[in-house]
Design a protein around this nucleic acid. Structure first.
Length: 425
RNA sequence: GGAGGAGUGGCAGAGCGGUUGAAUGCACCGGUCUUGAAAACCGGCGUACCGAGAGGUACCGGGGGUUCGAAUCCCUCCUCCUCCGCCA
């Protein structure tokens, strides 16, 4: 969430940011509401503190009087303190309610978009930041979509997944399973080469963790929930990886911290069904290698562009046609200040498939997480960034479709040492 | 899952219900001394909130309670350790 001091000092910028996001005009008063609640909070806190200070003083005196044996004076003072206690309880309750209301409102305010975020309302307004290559590959006349290729080569099976679990849980087999494992290893190796520390995190997380990265309460419906143990299946490795640094105070010399992790990701994604979610285009369980960085506020945008370059490099090694989009205000994630999406072109479907999303959250996540660093005598919130490098299922879809030949699927050179075969047939 | 023990500052480790935000040691930072270093000595050394400041308030695993007053007493939850059971 946004920092109160930031809102107070940059009210116009925050309002402008909300407009960029197409936040409804009639709800813009939320900013004023928040500042007013904060004033109320401060007043209550000030008064409560003075009441408590008085109580503490009297209590000390009472202690002294008892030692001196002045019991009557002490008793009189005790009655006085009892009154103060009632007042303190009232103020505490008021403070608690104000804080709750404040937090509730604050949760409704999205991050302030970076100045480079283009205006717009839907994904059609996203800016093509970088096309690559200039020319799109022409699909062969008889090009098959990946779900048909899957049947042809017996590499994954959605019906079996449905039998075992339910729709949207693919089962990979044979060379398909091997391809999956190869991609994971390849992505992890690339990230480690780029200086990221490899992490294997837990796949279930508790409530505090889900709240810190903003899955709760914003995206509760997106997560699978294990009620008996009050745990959530992670929708992305971002959740456990980022939470490693929850409630941590770093030193400036610790920056940048670079983590990577492979995990399965679980998403309920209740909603749309149809042709564009066929096959691996959208599933409830998929594999992903995530990269996460924690950085000094002055350097986080350099870091963001480095992360873009990393993802770009990996896609080029896979020889997949892709483009980078700068998300417009309307498409930008709630917690992000600036996001670039990577889309690979799926020749047979003649569609772009999103395979990565790289974002700078600035202090939005770190404020919830209390991730700080020492800045002179005080502390400051660090910046958090993350990106997919990369999400498997759609990469597989594009790879199968783009590389199909009459003899089989051609495996990109960079991947061959991982798959152990050059042709999937 | 059952029985017992424990959770205090970066670490170690004190703490009769009252002047303890918390002894002491180590680590760390600054200084004196030294050609330099070590040693020794002196000083500093948690976080958050309120306050222009002085200063105040809160926090001793989390939450609740008793009390004029709780790190210290009670309840509850969590975590860790030991033993038993089960187990990849």
């Amino acid at each position: 969430m946004l920092e109160l001091n930031f809102i107070r000092a940059n009210k116009e910028r925050v309002l402008q940011g909300l407009k960029t996001r197409n936040f409804p005009d009639e709800e813009l008063h939320i900013i004023e509401d928040i500042l007013r609640l904060d004033d109320t909070r401060k007043d209550a806190k000030t008064e409560l503190d003075s009441v408590l200070a008085e109580r503490n003083q009297l209590s000390k005196k009472i202690g002294g009087l008892f030692k001196e044996g002045k019991k009557e004076e002490a008793d009189a003072m005790r009655r006085q303190v009892t009154q103060l206690k009632d007042r303190a309880a009232e103020l505490e309750e008021q403070l608690r309610l104000t804080r709750e209301a404040l937090a509730e409102q604050l949760y409704k305010v999205p991050n302030v978009p970076h100045e480079s975020v283009p205006p717009g309302s839907t994904d059609e307004d996203n800016e093509v930041f970088k096309p690559w290559p200039e020319e799109l590959p022409e699909p062969g006349a008889d090009a098959l979509p990946h779900w048909e290729l899957a049947q042809k080569y017996n590499i994954f099976d959605l019906d079996l997944g449905t039998k075992i679990t339910g729709s949207g849980f693919p089962l990979y087999r044979g060379k398909g399973a091997r391809l999956q494992r190869a991609l994971i290893s390849f992505f992890l190796d690339e990230a480690v080469k780029a200086g990221y520390e490899e992490i294997i995190p837990p796949l279930l997380v508790n409530e505090d963790t889900a709240r810190a990265t903003g899955q709760l309460p914003d995206k509760e419906a997106q997560m699978y929930y294990v009620e008996r143990d009050n745990l959530y299946l992670i929708p992305t490795a971002e959740v456990p990886l980022t939470n490693i640094y929850r409630d941590v105070i770093l030193e400036e010399k610790d920056f940048p911290i670079k983590l990577t992790g492979y995990t399965p990701c679980f998403r309920r994604e209740a909603g749309s069904y149809g042709a564009h979610v066929r096959g691996l285009n959208r599933v409830h369980q998929f594999d992903k290698v995530e990269i996460v960085q924690f950085q000094h506020p002055d350097k986080s945008y350099d870091t963001l562009y480095q992360m873009l370059e990393h993802v770009e490099g990996v896609l080029k090694k896979l020889e997949l046609p892709f483009r980078i989009l700068r998300l417009c205000g309307g498409d930008l994630g709630f917690t992000s200040a600036l996001t670039f999406d990577f889309e690979v072109y799926s020749a047979a479907q003649q569609r772009w498939l999103e395979v990565s999303s790289v974002s700078n959250f600035e202090t939005y996540q770190s404020n919830r997480m209390k991730l700080r660093f020492r800045d002179g005598k005080s502390t400051r919130l660090a910046h958090t960034l993350n990106g997919s490098a990369l999400a498997l299922a759609r990469i597989v879809a594009a790879l199968l479709e783009n590389n199909q030949t009459p003899d089989g699927i051609v495996i990109p050179k960079a991947l061959q040492s991982y798959t152990g075969f050059e042709l999937l047939n």
